Computed example of a mutant assay.
Amino acid sequence: MKKLLTLFLIVSVFTACKNDAKTEAKMSENGKTIEQNSELRTLVGQFIYYADAAVLQTRNDIYGVIINEKMHELNDMAKAYKKDPTDYVTVQVRGKVIPKPEGEEGWPFRIDIIEIDNVKKYESKENEVIKLNGDAIE
Protein backbone atom coordinates (compact mmCIF):
# COMPACT_ATOMS: atom_id res chain seq x y z
CA MET A 1 0.00 0.00 0.00
CA LYS A 2 2.87 2.39 0.81
CA LYS A 3 4.48 1.66 -2.57
CA LEU A 4 1.24 2.36 -4.38
CA LEU A 5 0.75 5.63 -2.47
CA THR A 6 4.35 6.68 -3.16
CA LEU A 7 4.01 5.84 -6.85
CA PHE A 8 0.75 7.80 -7.06
CA LEU A 9 2.39 10.79 -5.34
CA ILE A 10 5.38 10.76 -7.72
CA VAL A 11 3.16 10.50 -10.80
CA SER A 12 0.91 13.31 -9.62
CA VAL A 13 3.90 15.59 -8.94
CA PHE A 14 5.34 15.04 -12.41
CA THR A 15 2.03 15.53 -14.17
CA ALA A 16 1.30 18.68 -12.18
CA CYS A 17 4.63 20.20 -13.22
CA LYS A 18 4.14 19.42 -16.90
CA ASN A 19 3.62 22.50 -19.03
CA ASP A 20 0.91 21.72 -21.57
CA ALA A 21 0.79 25.20 -23.06
CA LYS A 22 2.34 24.90 -26.48
CA THR A 23 2.92 28.16 -28.25
CA GLU A 24 4.55 28.82 -31.54
CA ALA A 25 7.80 30.64 -30.96
CA LYS A 26 8.81 33.28 -33.46
CA MET A 27 12.04 32.18 -35.05
CA SER A 28 14.77 34.45 -36.28
CA GLU A 29 17.10 33.77 -39.19
CA ASN A 30 19.69 31.98 -37.01
CA GLY A 31 17.18 29.39 -35.73
CA LYS A 32 16.78 30.80 -32.24
CA THR A 33 13.60 32.23 -30.81
CA ILE A 34 13.42 35.98 -30.39
CA GLU A 35 13.79 35.61 -26.61
CA GLN A 36 16.88 33.43 -26.99
CA ASN A 37 18.37 35.58 -29.72
CA SER A 38 19.10 38.69 -27.71
CA GLU A 39 19.09 40.45 -24.43
CA LEU A 40 16.30 42.79 -25.54
CA ARG A 41 13.48 43.53 -23.12
CA THR A 42 10.12 45.04 -23.91
CA LEU A 43 9.23 47.96 -21.66
CA VAL A 44 5.99 49.95 -21.52
CA GLY A 45 5.90 53.24 -19.69
CA GLN A 46 5.95 57.01 -19.80
CA PHE A 47 8.75 58.63 -21.79
CA ILE A 48 10.05 62.18 -21.53
CA TYR A 49 13.00 63.95 -23.13
CA TYR A 50 13.76 67.42 -21.88
CA ALA A 51 16.94 69.48 -21.50
CA ASP A 52 19.29 66.71 -22.69
CA ALA A 53 17.87 64.11 -20.29
CA ALA A 54 15.64 61.22 -21.32
CA VAL A 55 13.72 59.02 -18.86
CA LEU A 56 11.42 56.02 -19.19
CA GLN A 57 9.22 55.35 -16.17
CA THR A 58 7.54 51.95 -16.07
CA ARG A 59 5.07 50.74 -13.47
CA ASN A 60 7.88 49.52 -11.19
CA ASP A 61 11.14 51.13 -12.32
CA ILE A 62 12.71 54.24 -13.79
CA TYR A 63 15.33 53.99 -16.51
CA GLY A 64 17.68 56.58 -17.94
CA VAL A 65 17.44 56.44 -21.73
CA ILE A 66 20.69 56.43 -23.69
CA ILE A 67 20.60 59.39 -26.04
CA ASN A 68 21.22 58.14 -29.57
CA GLU A 69 19.51 58.19 -32.98
CA LYS A 70 16.72 55.81 -31.89
CA MET A 71 15.93 57.97 -28.85
CA HIS A 72 15.72 61.05 -31.09
CA GLU A 73 13.43 59.11 -33.45
CA LEU A 74 11.21 58.23 -30.46
CA ASN A 75 11.19 61.86 -29.34
CA ASP A 76 10.19 63.01 -32.84
CA MET A 77 7.30 60.51 -32.80
CA ALA A 78 6.32 61.68 -29.30
CA LYS A 79 6.10 65.36 -30.29
CA ALA A 80 2.82 64.68 -32.09
CA TYR A 81 1.21 63.71 -28.75
CA LYS A 82 2.62 66.52 -26.57
CA LYS A 83 1.08 69.89 -25.79
CA ASP A 84 4.10 71.08 -23.79
CA PRO A 85 7.74 69.97 -24.03
CA THR A 86 7.50 68.55 -20.48
CA ASP A 87 4.55 66.25 -21.25
CA TYR A 88 4.93 62.49 -21.02
CA VAL A 89 3.93 60.06 -23.75
CA THR A 90 3.17 56.37 -23.31
CA VAL A 91 5.57 54.16 -25.25
CA GLN A 92 6.35 50.52 -25.82
CA VAL A 93 9.97 49.92 -26.74
CA ARG A 94 12.45 47.06 -26.94
CA GLY A 95 16.01 47.58 -25.87
CA LYS A 96 19.00 46.50 -23.86
CA VAL A 97 18.87 47.24 -20.14
CA ILE A 98 22.33 48.21 -18.94
CA PRO A 99 23.46 48.82 -15.33
CA LYS A 100 24.66 52.36 -14.62
CA PRO A 101 28.46 52.61 -14.47
CA GLU A 102 29.84 53.06 -10.96
CA GLY A 103 30.64 56.60 -9.96
CA GLU A 104 28.04 58.18 -12.24
CA GLU A 105 24.87 59.87 -11.09
CA GLY A 106 21.51 58.80 -12.37
CA TRP A 107 19.07 55.92 -12.32
CA PRO A 108 20.40 52.44 -11.45
CA PHE A 109 19.66 51.15 -14.98
CA ARG A 110 19.73 52.58 -18.48
CA ILE A 111 17.96 51.41 -21.60
CA ASP A 112 19.45 51.50 -25.06
CA ILE A 113 16.38 51.59 -27.32
CA ILE A 114 16.65 49.26 -30.30
CA GLU A 115 13.02 49.08 -31.51
CA ILE A 116 10.03 51.39 -31.11
CA ASP A 117 6.80 49.37 -31.00
CA ASN A 118 4.16 51.92 -30.02
CA VAL A 119 3.77 55.62 -29.11
CA LYS A 120 0.54 57.19 -27.87
CA LYS A 121 -0.74 60.07 -25.78
CA TYR A 122 -0.30 59.74 -22.02
CA GLU A 123 -3.71 59.67 -20.35
CA SER A 124 -3.28 61.25 -16.92
CA LYS A 125 -5.77 60.13 -14.29
CA GLU A 126 -4.81 62.95 -11.97
CA ASN A 127 -8.01 64.96 -12.43
CA GLU A 128 -10.35 61.99 -12.70
CA VAL A 129 -13.60 62.36 -10.77
CA ILE A 130 -15.61 59.37 -9.54
CA LYS A 131 -19.33 59.92 -8.91
CA LEU A 132 -21.21 57.80 -6.38
CA ASN A 133 -24.95 58.42 -5.98
CA GLY A 134 -24.59 61.97 -7.27
CA ASP A 135 -21.72 62.89 -4.92
CA ALA A 136 -18.38 63.68 -6.53
CA ILE A 137 -15.21 62.22 -5.06
CA GLU A 138 -11.91 63.60 -6.31
Rank of each mutant, 00 (worst) to 15 (best):
K82R: 14
K120V: 08
I98P: 03
N37C: 07
Y122M: 01
Y122T: 10
P99E: 11
G95Q: 03
T33S: 13
K131Y: 13
A25E: 15
A54H: 00
K70Q: 15
K131E: 13
E39P: 05
I98N: 03
N118G: 04
K100I: 00
A53H: 04
N133D: 14
P101E: 12
V97Y: 05
I34K: 12
P108L: 00
A78T: 12
E105G: 10
K121P: 03
G45I: 08
W107E: 13
K121V: 06
F47K: 06
K83Q: 11
G64D: 14
G103T: 06
Y63R: 02
A16L: 10
N127I: 04
G64L: 00
I66K: 02
I48E: 02
A51D: 14
R110Y: 07
Y49A: 00
A80H: 08
P85N: 13
P85A: 11
E128M: 03
Y122A: 03
Y49F: 08
Q36Y: 01
S12Y: 10
A25N: 12
T6Q: 12
Y63F: 15
S38M: 02
T58A: 02
T33Q: 03
A25M: 02
L132C: 07
M27Y: 10
F14S: 10
I113L: 07
I111T: 04
G134F: 04
T42E: 14
N37D: 15
A53N: 08
V97P: 05
E69W: 01
L56Y: 12
N127M: 04
